[in-house]
């Protein structure tokens, strides 16, 4: 907001050390995209399709 341009919310201070791994993960949109598409594809779609394919024939 225009009116919060005071001390606190000016440019973030320079990083005082290495950025934690988890923060790096959360800052990587394409890594997250990969995870967010792969996980449901494997657990929901592929696993589900395998189950349906393996339904046995009635005698």
């Amino acid at each position: 907001m225009a009116n919060d341009g005071d001390t606190a919310s000016s440019t973030p201070e320079a990083a005082p050390g290495p950025i934690p791994v988890m923060q790096q993960v959360l800052d990587s949109p394409f890594l997250l995209l990969f995870l967010g598409v792969t996980l449901p594809t494997v657990l929901y779609l592929i696993w589900g399709v395998m189950e349906i394919i393996s339904v046995p024939l009635a005698d």
Binding site: L26, L32, L35, G36, L39, P40, L43, Y44, W47, G48, E51, I52, V55
Partner: peptide, 25 residues
């Protein structure tokens, strides 16, 4: 992040009364 990883799995809510899918799934 929990949404990104797991929220889509809930698509299974519509398949709980179906034949052919195991209880594990």
């Amino acid at each position: 992040l929990m949404y990104i990883l797991f929220l889509q799995l809930a698509s299974a809510h519509h398949l709980l009364a179906e034949p052919g899918l195991s209880s594990q799934w």
